[in-house]
């Protein structure tokens, strides 16, 4: 099955976002792998059960492991490293996700005005989510 080969205008916003989606997706999986590896380094094999490990892999927030067997979450599991790590994940993931929503919605939109409204609204919602998410990371 050969998909149609589209000629992409290198340097255009569409191409940049197309490339960003792929690279950020691969990057997010790298983040998950590092989260898991460092959880094992911190002794997660005996301290975390599987659901907790999956939560931590998905997003390494101290709230995700607070109900596990870790004696003191503030030692190793909650510090500036994980806050910056979490911020980078949220930045990549939200950009990836909201750009995905934009692409799905634009497949069903005909008029340029509707596209403009959708893009504007998504930008506002994205920035709002980003601010709240960063606040939650720094406050937890």
């Amino acid at each position: 099955m050969q998909p149609p080969r589209l000629t992409r205008n290198a340097g255009s916003l569409d191409y940049s976002l197309w490339l960003f989606t792929r690279l950020s997706g691969l990057g997010l999986m790298l983040f998950a792998a590092v989260s898991m590896a460092l959880a094992f380094v911190l002794g997660g094999r005996t301290l975390l059960d599987l659901p907790t490990m999956l939560r931590w892999m998905f997003f390494p927030n101290p709230n995700h492991v607070v109900n596990s067997n870790i004696p003191d979450v503030s030692l190793g599991w909650s510090n500036a490293f994980w806050q910056i790590f979490g911020f980078l994940i949220v930045l990549l993931a939200s950009a990836h996700g909201f750009n995905g929503v934009r692409m799905v919605l634009e497949d069903y939109l005909r008029s340029p005005l509707a596209v403009l409204i959708v893009r504007g609204s998504l930008l506002v919602i994205w920035l709002g989510c980003l601010i709240i998410a960063v606040y939650v990371i720094l406050a937890s």
């Binding site: 996700g97 909201f98 989510c129």
Partner: peptide, 17 residues
């Protein structure tokens, strides 16, 4: 699944807040 994850993570962020 992509739309589902956005929905889940979005509501989860606001619920945690």
């Amino acid at each position: 699944t992509g739309l589902g994850i956005v929905l889940f993570v979005g509501t989860h962020v606001f619920a945690s807040f």
